[in-house]
Design a protein around this nucleic acid. Structure first.
Length: 171
DNA sequence: AAATACTTCAACCGCCGCAAC
DNA sequence: GGTTGCGGCGGTTGAAGTATT
């Protein structure tokens, strides 16, 4: 314990703070977040800087709502991996773990309220799949599947869902 | 038009694993 | 081998926005 109480800024980021952080990362690259505060002139701790960059400022982030195809991918991967949001996010370029986590929670709320349209029927089916999936099996699968395998799975899944959920109404 | 309920999502918190010392 | 600091992760919160009454 250092015992030193830092008075880091908290709460929503201002435009100026964003600008400073983006500039810093553009010049120095990602990483070494704990030193970003002093280097970039921000009164934010490293975690806060990293989070802001990863979840909001990264240039490769995809804006806009989750597509039906992405939703199907999320549901299926959640059935495989459980709440491993960062793992799921790696299969959805431009989407963050935070975004997926929030989306899942929203979806789950809707689900629990009960609905009968086509899209929710598919969601329910996929959720049932998840419940049947034993933890040991999931563990074994985790050990077996490498990144290349995942890519294959994702390609197949996307093709499959294009056909299955093509009639989805966007949320 | 105002009050209230509900939803969304950015950001924080606490924990864990890992690397450096 | 123990300690410390950092990055990353998942769970949670609460402010702001939106819908409903």
């Amino acid at each position: 314990m250092s015992g030193v109480e830092e008075n880091w800024r908290k709460g929503p980021w201002t435009g100026e703070e964003d600008r400073l952080l983006v500039h810093h990362v553009n010049v120095h690259g990602e990483g070494r977040w704990s030193s970003v505060a002093t280097l970039a002139g921000l009164k934010r701790n490293g975690k806060s800087c990293r989070l802001r960059w990863v979840n909001y400022l990264r240039p490769d982030l995809k804006r806009g709502s989750i597509t039906p195809q992405e939703e199907a991918v999320i549901l299926d991967l959640h059935a495989r991996w459980g709440n491993r949001w960062s793992t799921i996010a790696r299969s959805l370029p431009g989407r963050t773990d935070n975004e997926i986590k929030n989306y899942w929670r929203t979806l789950f709320k809707k689900e629990s309220k009960g609905a009968s349209d086509e899209s929710t029927k598919l969601k329910t089916r996929l959720l049932m799949k998840r419940q049947k999936f034993q933890p040991e099996q999931r563990q074994r699968l985790m050990m077996q599947q490498n990144e290349a395998d995942m890519k294959k799975v994702m390609t197949l899944l996307l093709e499959e869902t294009e056909n299955k959920v093509g009639r989805y109404m966007p949320l």
